[in-house]
Simulated assay, not measured.
Amino acid sequence: MATVICVATQKGGTGKSSTAINVACALEVAGYRVIVVDTDPQATFSLWHRKRKKLGLNGFKVLQIPKGLLDEEIQALREDEKLDIILVDCPGNIEDITSTAVKLSDAVLSPLRPSSMDMTHSADTARFIKEMRNSYPDIRFILFLNAAMPRWNISRDIGPATREMLKNLPKTTVLEAKIPLAVAIAEFFGTGQSIFEYAPKSAAATAYKRLTKEVIQCLQN
Protein backbone atom coordinates (compact mmCIF):
# COMPACT_ATOMS: atom_id res chain seq x y z
CA MET A 1 0.00 0.00 0.00
CA ALA A 2 1.12 3.55 -0.73
CA THR A 3 2.39 5.79 2.07
CA VAL A 4 0.45 9.01 2.70
CA ILE A 5 2.41 12.12 3.71
CA CYS A 6 0.58 15.38 4.30
CA VAL A 7 2.40 18.70 4.39
CA ALA A 8 0.60 20.79 6.99
CA THR A 9 1.21 23.64 9.39
CA GLN A 10 -0.64 25.56 12.08
CA LYS A 11 -0.24 28.79 10.09
CA GLY A 12 0.42 30.06 6.58
CA GLY A 13 3.60 31.56 5.21
CA THR A 14 5.95 28.81 6.33
CA GLY A 15 6.88 27.52 2.86
CA LYS A 16 4.47 24.61 2.91
CA SER A 17 3.75 24.45 -0.83
CA SER A 18 7.42 25.03 -1.75
CA THR A 19 8.20 22.10 0.52
CA ALA A 20 5.53 19.90 -1.06
CA ILE A 21 6.70 20.74 -4.59
CA ASN A 22 10.38 20.06 -4.03
CA VAL A 23 9.90 16.98 -1.86
CA ALA A 24 7.57 15.52 -4.50
CA CYS A 25 10.16 16.17 -7.21
CA ALA A 26 12.99 14.76 -5.08
CA LEU A 27 10.98 11.61 -4.36
CA GLU A 28 10.26 11.14 -8.06
CA VAL A 29 13.93 11.56 -8.98
CA ALA A 30 14.78 8.97 -6.30
CA GLY A 31 12.53 6.49 -8.09
CA TYR A 32 9.36 6.68 -6.02
CA ARG A 33 6.02 6.63 -7.80
CA VAL A 34 4.34 9.77 -6.54
CA ILE A 35 0.95 11.42 -6.83
CA VAL A 36 0.05 14.75 -5.25
CA VAL A 37 -3.32 15.75 -3.80
CA ASP A 38 -3.76 19.53 -3.61
CA THR A 39 -6.35 20.38 -0.95
CA ASP A 40 -5.32 24.02 -0.54
CA PRO A 41 -8.08 26.40 -1.76
CA GLN A 42 -5.33 28.69 -3.08
CA ALA A 43 -4.26 25.80 -5.37
CA THR A 44 -0.61 26.88 -5.21
CA PHE A 45 0.72 23.44 -6.11
CA SER A 46 -1.76 23.03 -8.95
CA LEU A 47 -0.85 26.44 -10.43
CA TRP A 48 2.83 25.50 -10.37
CA HIS A 49 2.08 22.13 -11.92
CA ARG A 50 0.08 23.76 -14.73
CA LYS A 51 3.14 25.84 -15.65
CA ARG A 52 5.24 22.67 -15.45
CA LYS A 53 3.05 20.81 -17.93
CA LYS A 54 3.38 23.66 -20.42
CA LEU A 55 7.14 23.08 -20.30
CA GLY A 56 6.64 19.39 -21.04
CA LEU A 57 7.85 18.45 -17.54
CA ASN A 58 4.77 16.45 -16.64
CA GLY A 59 6.15 13.89 -14.19
CA PHE A 60 3.73 13.03 -11.43
CA LYS A 61 0.01 13.79 -11.47
CA VAL A 62 -1.65 16.42 -9.27
CA LEU A 63 -5.26 15.94 -8.20
CA GLN A 64 -7.67 18.41 -6.64
CA ILE A 65 -10.12 16.49 -4.49
CA PRO A 66 -13.07 18.16 -2.74
CA LYS A 67 -13.28 17.81 1.03
CA GLY A 68 -16.30 15.53 0.93
CA LEU A 69 -14.49 12.97 -1.22
CA LEU A 70 -11.06 13.20 0.40
CA ASP A 71 -11.41 10.16 2.65
CA GLU A 72 -12.74 7.91 -0.09
CA GLU A 73 -10.29 9.06 -2.77
CA ILE A 74 -7.15 8.87 -0.64
CA GLN A 75 -8.09 5.40 0.55
CA ALA A 76 -8.49 4.34 -3.09
CA LEU A 77 -5.13 5.87 -3.99
CA ARG A 78 -3.48 4.14 -1.03
CA GLU A 79 -4.54 0.79 -2.44
CA ASP A 80 -3.20 1.57 -5.93
CA GLU A 81 -0.31 -0.83 -6.54
CA LYS A 82 1.18 1.62 -9.07
CA LEU A 83 1.86 4.22 -6.35
CA ASP A 84 4.47 4.41 -3.61
CA ILE A 85 3.73 7.81 -2.04
CA ILE A 86 0.69 10.08 -1.89
CA LEU A 87 1.72 13.62 -0.97
CA VAL A 88 -1.08 15.86 0.30
CA ASP A 89 -0.59 19.64 0.22
CA CYS A 90 -2.91 21.05 2.90
CA PRO A 91 -4.29 24.56 3.47
CA GLY A 92 -2.11 27.02 5.37
CA ASN A 93 -3.72 26.35 8.75
CA ILE A 94 -5.41 23.59 10.68
CA GLU A 95 -8.81 23.51 9.00
CA ASP A 96 -11.32 20.67 8.80
CA ILE A 97 -9.82 19.51 5.52
CA THR A 98 -6.36 19.41 7.12
CA SER A 99 -7.74 17.36 10.02
CA THR A 100 -9.21 14.90 7.52
CA ALA A 101 -5.90 14.66 5.64
CA VAL A 102 -3.96 14.09 8.87
CA LYS A 103 -6.30 11.27 9.89
CA LEU A 104 -5.59 9.56 6.58
CA SER A 105 -1.81 10.04 6.74
CA ASP A 106 1.12 7.96 7.84
CA ALA A 107 3.20 11.10 8.44
CA VAL A 108 2.78 14.86 8.74
CA LEU A 109 5.64 17.01 7.41
CA SER A 110 5.65 20.49 8.93
CA PRO A 111 7.99 23.40 8.07
CA LEU A 112 9.08 25.64 10.93
CA ARG A 113 10.44 29.14 10.33
CA PRO A 114 13.10 30.59 12.66
CA SER A 115 10.93 32.80 14.86
CA SER A 116 9.56 32.55 18.36
CA MET A 117 6.04 32.92 16.93
CA ASP A 118 6.51 29.89 14.70
CA MET A 119 7.78 27.87 17.66
CA THR A 120 4.52 28.68 19.41
CA HIS A 121 2.50 27.58 16.39
CA SER A 122 4.54 24.38 16.12
CA ALA A 123 3.76 23.63 19.75
CA ASP A 124 0.07 24.10 18.93
CA THR A 125 0.44 21.78 15.93
CA ALA A 126 2.17 19.17 18.09
CA ARG A 127 -0.72 19.33 20.55
CA PHE A 128 -3.11 18.86 17.64
CA ILE A 129 -1.16 15.79 16.49
CA LYS A 130 -1.10 14.46 20.05
CA GLU A 131 -4.87 14.76 20.17
CA MET A 132 -5.15 13.02 16.80
CA ARG A 133 -2.99 10.17 18.08
CA ASN A 134 -5.62 9.36 20.70
CA SER A 135 -7.60 7.90 17.80
CA TYR A 136 -4.79 7.42 15.28
CA PRO A 137 -1.71 6.35 17.26
CA ASP A 138 0.57 5.53 14.33
CA ILE A 139 0.84 9.00 12.79
CA ARG A 140 4.42 10.29 12.63
CA PHE A 141 5.06 14.01 13.02
CA ILE A 142 8.14 15.40 11.22
CA LEU A 143 9.33 19.01 11.61
CA PHE A 144 12.18 20.87 9.96
CA LEU A 145 13.59 24.38 9.87
CA ASN A 146 12.72 26.39 6.77
CA ALA A 147 14.12 29.77 5.63
CA ALA A 148 17.10 29.30 7.94
CA MET A 149 19.87 31.89 8.26
CA PRO A 150 23.06 30.40 9.78
CA ARG A 151 24.14 33.73 11.26
CA TRP A 152 20.87 34.25 13.09
CA ASN A 153 20.92 33.05 16.69
CA ILE A 154 17.35 31.81 16.47
CA SER A 155 18.20 29.72 13.37
CA ARG A 156 20.88 27.96 15.40
CA ASP A 157 18.77 27.64 18.53
CA ILE A 158 15.33 26.73 17.23
CA GLY A 159 16.18 23.12 16.27
CA PRO A 160 17.48 22.08 19.69
CA ALA A 161 14.74 24.11 21.42
CA THR A 162 12.02 22.42 19.37
CA ARG A 163 13.52 18.97 20.01
CA GLU A 164 13.47 19.70 23.74
CA MET A 165 9.87 20.93 23.55
CA LEU A 166 8.71 17.81 21.69
CA LYS A 167 10.98 15.16 23.22
CA ASN A 168 8.19 13.46 25.16
CA LEU A 169 5.91 13.10 22.15
CA PRO A 170 6.23 9.65 20.53
CA LYS A 171 6.94 9.39 16.80
CA THR A 172 7.83 13.08 16.62
CA THR A 173 11.08 14.05 14.89
CA VAL A 174 12.87 17.34 14.25
CA LEU A 175 15.07 16.75 11.21
CA GLU A 176 18.70 17.83 10.99
CA ALA A 177 18.19 19.18 7.46
CA LYS A 178 17.61 22.93 7.24
CA ILE A 179 16.28 24.71 4.16
CA PRO A 180 18.12 28.03 3.74
CA LEU A 181 16.56 31.40 3.06
CA ALA A 182 17.51 31.72 -0.61
CA VAL A 183 16.62 33.78 -3.66
CA ALA A 184 16.34 30.63 -5.78
CA ILE A 185 13.52 29.33 -3.58
CA ALA A 186 11.64 32.60 -4.00
CA GLU A 187 12.10 32.48 -7.78
CA PHE A 188 11.63 28.84 -8.83
CA PHE A 189 7.83 28.71 -8.42
CA GLY A 190 7.11 31.09 -11.29
CA THR A 191 9.11 28.96 -13.72
CA GLY A 192 7.23 25.66 -13.37
CA GLN A 193 10.53 24.05 -12.44
CA SER A 194 11.63 22.50 -9.17
CA ILE A 195 14.61 23.87 -7.27
CA PHE A 196 16.63 20.97 -8.70
CA GLU A 197 15.99 22.15 -12.26
CA TYR A 198 16.06 25.89 -11.61
CA ALA A 199 19.20 25.98 -9.44
CA PRO A 200 20.66 22.45 -9.40
CA LYS A 201 23.99 23.42 -7.82
CA SER A 202 22.51 25.68 -5.15
CA ALA A 203 22.64 25.13 -1.40
CA ALA A 204 18.83 25.03 -1.46
CA ALA A 205 18.78 22.09 -3.89
CA THR A 206 21.28 20.20 -1.75
CA ALA A 207 19.23 20.95 1.37
CA TYR A 208 15.98 19.69 -0.16
CA LYS A 209 17.71 16.46 -1.22
CA ARG A 210 18.93 15.95 2.34
CA LEU A 211 15.50 16.80 3.72
CA THR A 212 13.82 14.23 1.49
CA LYS A 213 16.39 11.58 2.41
CA GLU A 214 15.74 12.19 6.12
CA VAL A 215 11.97 12.01 5.59
CA ILE A 216 12.37 8.63 3.89
CA GLN A 217 14.57 7.41 6.76
CA CYS A 218 11.90 8.48 9.27
CA LEU A 219 9.26 6.54 7.43
CA GLN A 220 11.43 3.44 7.30
CA ASN A 221 12.23 3.45 11.04
Rank of each mutant, 00 (worst) to 15 (best):
A101M: 04
P41C: 07
T3Y: 08
F188Q: 04
P180G: 00
R140Y: 07
G15K: 01
L169W: 12
E131R: 15
V183Q: 15
R52E: 01
F189E: 13
G13I: 00
V215S: 03
F60K: 00
A2V: 06
I97A: 00
D138E: 15
I154P: 11
A107I: 05
A184M: 05
H121T: 15
K82I: 05
L55M: 08
V215P: 05
G56H: 08
K82A: 13
G92K: 10
L219W: 08
N153M: 12
R156H: 12
D138Q: 14
C6E: 08
G56E: 11
A203Y: 07
S155P: 09
K61D: 15
A24H: 03
Q193I: 03
V37M: 00
T120Q: 11
A182W: 07
A203R: 14
E28G: 09
T14I: 08
C90D: 10
K178D: 04
L69D: 12
K16N: 06
I94Q: 04
F188P: 10
V4S: 09
I97E: 04
A43H: 08
Y198T: 01
F141I: 00
I154V: 12
V34F: 02
R127L: 07
D106L: 01
R210H: 09
S105Y: 02
A101V: 02
F196Q: 02
K67S: 14
K11I: 00
Y136G: 06
L211T: 06
F188H: 07
Y136F: 14
K53D: 12
I85F: 11
P180Q: 00
A184L: 08
E73A: 14
T162M: 15
T98Q: 03
L70M: 04
I21F: 05
L112R: 05
G68K: 12
M1G: 10
N153Y: 13
A204Q: 03
P111T: 01
N93H: 12
M132E: 13
T162N: 10
N93K: 10
V29G: 08
F45Y: 14
L55Y: 10
D89T: 04
L87K: 01
A101L: 01
L104S: 01
N58P: 08
I216R: 03
L63E: 13
I142L: 11
K61P: 10
M165H: 06
P137C: 07
I216D: 10
A126L: 03
A184N: 13
V183S: 14
A203D: 15
I179L: 00
H49M: 02
T44V: 12
I5F: 04
V29Q: 14
M132V: 12
Y198K: 02
L83T: 09
L69S: 10
A148V: 03
V88S: 06
L83H: 09
K61F: 09
M165W: 00
E164V: 05
R163M: 07
D157V: 05
M132W: 04
S194H: 02
G190V: 02
M119Q: 13
A26F: 09
A76H: 13
H121M: 11
L181I: 03
S99T: 13
E197M: 06
I65C: 02
P91F: 07
I74C: 00
